[in-house]
Design a protein around this nucleic acid. Structure first.
Lengths: 174, 174
DNA sequence: GCTTGACCTGTTATGATATTACATACATAG
DNA sequence: CTATGTATGTAATATCATAACAGGTCAAGC
């Protein structure tokens, strides 16, 4: 693969309109950019973006949908990688740790991160029909919760915010 | 069972300090009150609080922790009810539909609702150590998300907000 | 160059969670 | 008392996830 051009936020559609899962956009650019960032991020942290891991990321980047571990596994097996669950789960775990993918609790599934490298812990808008996932800003919601938690003496470590509903495309069909 | 006294918010600890999962409180009252409300709520809606369903609610009400469906099932089986998964799942689904219990996605588990009858869609504070669950106010968080969703043309139907961390008791132990 | 050690991949086996499908029982309205 | 709808019981299976171990790869240091 040729070395990708350095990322330029000013010209990157993903940066200009970050929550574009539901909007028409240049997805080839979107995916290629995310992959390029993934190379940069892992190189910087000393982590290894091995063939399996990279392939899993590519699979997740094919669109803005969430895929189950076994779906990913089937794709991997078709590509000649191992076909036992740990192969997929380990690669997915790695990507999540590196901030390159997110786990969607509601679906027991995984989706590529739309903003890799930008520290964030987003909220997700999940289409119950097509399993598209968009990332939304979660900071206000987190802050509100933090207040209640502090009052109760509870220490929050991680917060999951997921909204299930219908994306624009699926709404039109119905 | 004797008819429970009508619910009086002014004298009910659960109403005075609603998020008491982590605080010392008169839990016998707390559970009895929730059970009494459950009878009232189901009677009002025409739903039937059958023996299995009632027993599942009692089990969940034993404390403010989340229990897996199979944990509930084992308890049911010990009480002479069926011991196949659908027995537990159906009762739990019923309780969730009636607003008498909540599903905790993060744990694949269920907890009795702390405020049955009060229309709400709460956020949860979940102790990763003891699986205690407290309910917190989710309205501000939902509102913030709704704004983003509207901008993207996404229709939110249900929102899950779950914070994982340590409750005061488990924090003290560590 | 070889050894060592860390890490990654593959595989077997199993555990944990959840649903489908169908049979039976039970309450109640007519 | 029978038809109907609803609830329960059971078997079988689907789906999601991890533990445990064997073998391979690769780079650092001798």
């Amino acid at each position: 693969m040729p070395t990708p051009a350095p990322h330029n936020p000013a010209t990157c559609p993903g940066c200009a309109a970050p929550d574009l899962a539901f909007a028409a956009h240049d997805h080839a650019h979107c995916a290629a950019d995310a992959l390029a960032r993934a190379h940069a991020i892992t190189a910087a942290s000393g982590a290894r973006l091995t063939p399996v891991r990279r392939r899993v990321l590519e699979i997740l980047l094919e669109d803005h949908r969430a895929l189950g571990a076994y779906d990913v596994l089937a794709r991997l097996a078709a590509d000649g990688f191992g076909n036992q669950p740990p192969v997929a789960y380990r690669a997915l775990e790695f990507l999540v740790e590196q901030g390159l993918a997110h786990r969607i609790q509601r679906l027991n599934a995984f989706t590529a991160c739309a903003h890799p490298g930008e520290a964030h812990a987003p909220a997700f808008l999940i289409c119950r029909s097509c399993h598209s996932v968009a990332e939304a800003e979660a900071a206000p919601a987190r802050d509100a919760l933090a207040h209640d938690a502090a009052r109760l003496g509870f220490t929050i470590e991680r917060t999951t915010i997921e909204a299930l509903g219908l994306c624009p495309a699926c709404k039109d069909q119905a």
